[in-house]
Design a protein around this nucleic acid. Structure first.
Lengths: 143, 143
DNA sequence: AAAGAAAAAGACAAAAAACTCTTTTATTTG
DNA sequence: CAAATAAAAGAGTTTTTTGTCTTTTTCTTT
């Protein structure tokens, strides 16, 4: 569904969101442990997301990654689009380049519905909105 | 969503289904052209599907791939499961190994619905059921 | 100003997926 | 039976994805 990089990205950002609730920052090592991902790999991914403004970062002692009010409101759709491109939002299930209403693949019509559901779900979900449930251990980011 | 191999597999089988409506067989070259896929790659995939009984084949002159009444009734879900395994039917969207009702990832509940929709769609769709529309050029398997 | 901490960057390495080429085996047909 | 045909099998190659390691830059704190 999503690439590994994208799965890690979402989990990492939700982790950072939770941790930066109270304005603190969180380092790569803690993130990697917190979501059970390869440290250097998630570092790369976050660097990328940072360059693109989906997460904030600060170097040096007491530095780390964090989110502010504005970035806490970023949608998972934005994250997915940034990491995986928009194939999941608009691509053909059977890999046709020009699959459309007028030239549909056999799954086109049914899949449109499903793609729209996925889009809506990802568009609706914001980075900050899971904090409470994560805090209460009703939701999990690893294992 | 699906691997390339799986996309080709579905398209190839739908192509074979259409061609074997009248009991004839179709060769690898014609299939590769018909669905616009790399010839040797789809050959491999079909060999695999053939070994597993999802398509029938015959060697030698006037040989080729074909489907009978029984195989025409195979579901796309079976094809997907054979080629890609069942990660799409049961895997976690965020890559957790033990994502479940009792230990859910943040997307678990929403995604369950979507996965079920996909499952149902694939379970319902049978290899033979697109023949008429393919014939009339209302559906396409390439480009 | 110096030391230490932490992200950024860059270069590799390993594994998986996608794709290619060649040889072998089975089957049909003249 | 011989020749031709077509799938099966096997052994690569290339590309992409995933993951690792090392060095550099930036920032903070003392």
């Amino acid at each position: 569904m999503f690439s590994k990089a994208c799965e890690y990205a979402i989990r990492a950002l939700l982790f950072v969101a939770q941790k930066s609730k109270d304005g603190s920052k969180v380092g790569i090592k803690e993130i990697a442990k917190g979501i059970d991902s390869p440290e250097h790999f998630i570092a790369k991914i976050l660097q990328d997301l940072s360059r693109k403004g989906l997460v904030l970062s600060q170097k040096g002692p007491s530095g780390g990654f964090y989110l502010d009010d504005s970035t806490l409101n970023i949608s998972l759709a934005d994250v997915v689009r940034t990491v995986d491109g928009d194939s999941i939002f608009s691509g053909c299930a059977l890999g046709l380049k020009q699959c459309s209403e007028t030239k549909p693949c056999p799954l086109h019509h049914e899949f449109k519905r499903i793609r729209d559901d996925i889009s809506e779900m990802l568009q609706t979900a914001k980075l900050g909105e899971f904090n409470a449930l994560l805090e209460k251990n009703k939701l999990f980011l690893k294992r």
